[in-house]
Design a binder for these strands. Structure first.
Lengths: 210, 210, 210, 210
DNA sequence: AATGAATGAGGATTCATTCAT
DNA sequence: AATGAATGAATCCTCATTCAT
């Protein structure tokens, strides 16, 4: 019954505490945004006193930046381009689109928080916002690569345009779902979007060839 | 002793004060969101004491709801479908897309605030959020009408799908611009988007006809 | 028995509240210095909630600066140079020295706080410290005038030197009393000091004449 | 397993750590006073974690008391009465005055902290304050001895008076310099003061002889 | 129509200190 | 000899709101 005593509750375990705090913070920040996330609320949710949060993070901004960093890693892992066995390049892109949609349905906090952060404009830009832009940039490069891979005939300007458009559609559809709830089938919409972007790309390449 | 004094410096002008408050509130709420908008900040920006704000608005929530309502009206006026003299239905839709883009560039506060409001999730939904959903619904109907007008052959499901997609693209591109600043030409992107939606509609109609 | 209802307790009376806050703040800051003066303590002593203090003063620094300003005025009023009927210039200076000593015994808070403020060195100089230096400068000019009046033969360099020395002695004797309590007769020491400074001045003037 | 490891990187050197902590503490306490000195700040400055400070010192008060003790020793060493080869008793006292002035210019932290401590009045007197009074008392005796040595004809009351006055002048001039910065030549002022005290002593002795 | 003053609740953050390792 | 982690109490200050005038 006693088993191997995983942690002994009261004995200092920095790593685990840090995770508990981050878990609480994602949940709250993902729902309430930067200003709406109070340290007291995070403290209440993770069970550690507010002052302990300050042992692990310099300040609220640092905490939220860490939230972004961690959720991005999780998210990134979930959205790899599938291997060749998955079919044609388009097939593989469609599967990826579905995967991204699914990950956004299951863990919407990352993008929700990110979008709120991005929309806000305050006198002194918080570090967390900068961090979101950074990871966002990485994500964008990932998508650019996929576009280049699926539509190799496109020139760089077209790749950039399509990528921008692809991301905009994804963000917009995500927002739509936040509005309308489950009535929006995000997977379906993402695939619709992906096909449209693909077809547009094909047409652009064709026009270029002429 | 003094009689009914019609105007006179401090004798107040309710309407104007209300406008001043709203002007301050749009600016702040459009940049900082709901939680980030403090009555004190609005008071400082409009020059009226906080207590005066409470004379005009029941509470903070009421104020922000009023902000949404007013900016929506302004916005709505700016985005009429142009008259017949503007050319074919598609031409007219393209002009409208450009107009919407321009209005978002000039007055981004309305949509920025709306999106922040929509993304937030809090225990007791604020009235301002509901109001945003309401006006958003009106806007959606407007766009549905345009879709129906431009692509009369489409069935209702397709109209809804296209409308959803059209709005998503618009939101997404707006967000993109908030990220990347002026480097994104919103008018151009909106027209790109409009054409794409239109062509998709045409293809859907053709498929249906078969 | 009811009398003319001076204030009605709960009805807003800004001026009086401000005084109550300042009264509390002098007492505490005069004993504990800048860092030792907590808003909560001031609040407890004056009976107004902490948030009310912030209605009257921008922040703690502003409050303490106001404390300095007000106590300086009080102090200044107490230390006029007596009129001619008081005797020779020296007699009058001696009386003034005694008066200063008495005022410091009765209300030591002003100087005690000021000295603490002056001794502290922090990254960003608080406004209250600057204010103390300002009023201190005024006080110095006052004393310079007295020196000039009592020892008209002195050149300006000598006036400055004697003034510096006079103030240093006053400060030092005050500190001494803070150490040793009532065992130091401040009035007596101030007069001893005043006479010494005077005699030195006389000797300096004589030397100069040669 | 490892045996008694004599030194080895992290094997700690109690004495040195203690010194590092004290070094950091003098600097901070000398600038910010008792309340303004936080353990966290000392920790940051000396590089050791806060908990290590508590290994060396019982509590903050104990730390500051130790600061006083150590700096007093340093200070005391710097201000010996020069030997006979330095000239007449007055010459020697003048040299000593200059030395004291120099030591205060070079290491003002000791006296600055001490004066702040002395001026503060708090409910439960901190041990550090008591310690300052103790060392201050030792310093006072030293000076009394010098006065007695330089002016052997004086009675005890006069010695005490002159000593009090001498210290007051020293403190006051030190404070003056804290106010006005380098524009006050402390060495010069201390010698001016010393001469004045000496001459006063001579006159007092003469009066007594009569 | 407007406002000066007040206020309790809550905001982020720092404090001195402890304790198991 | 030292330290990572934790913690309750206190810090300054802002919040939305009220109310008598």
């Amino acid at each position: 019954m006693t088993g191997p005593r995983t942690s002994g509750k009261k004995r200092a375990n920095g790593v685990e505490s840090r995770q508990r705090i981050l878990d609480a913070a994602v949940a709250i920040a993902g729902e309430r945004g930067y200003d709406g996330t109070s340290i007291a609320a995070v403290s209440a949710r993770c069970g550690l006193p507010a002052s302990s949060i300050y042992w692990h993070f310099r300040d609220k901004d640092d905490l939220i930046a860490a939230v972004i960093e961690r959720s991005f890693e999780t998210w990134l892992a979930a959205v790899e381009l599938p291997g060749e066995e998955a079919g044609t390049p388009l097939d593989r892109a469609m599967i990826m689109a579905a995967n991204v949609a699914k990950s956004l349905v299951n863990e919407p906090d990352f993008l929700r928080l990110g979008l709120m952060l991005a929309l806000e404009r305050r006198p002194e830009e918080p570090r967390s916002r900068t961090v979101f832009f950074q990871v966002r940039h990485i994500a964008r490069q990932r998508i650019e690569e996929v576009v280049r891979f699926v539509l190799p005939q496109l020139d760089e300007d077209a790749v950039r345009l399509l990528t921008t458009y692809a991301i905009a559609g994804a963000d917009g559809l995500f927002v739509q779902r936040e509005f309308n709830g489950d009535s929006v089938d995000l997977v379906e919409m993402f695939q619709f979007h992906a096909r449209l972007v693909y077809e547009t790309g094909v047409r652009m390449a064709a026009e270029r060839a002429r």
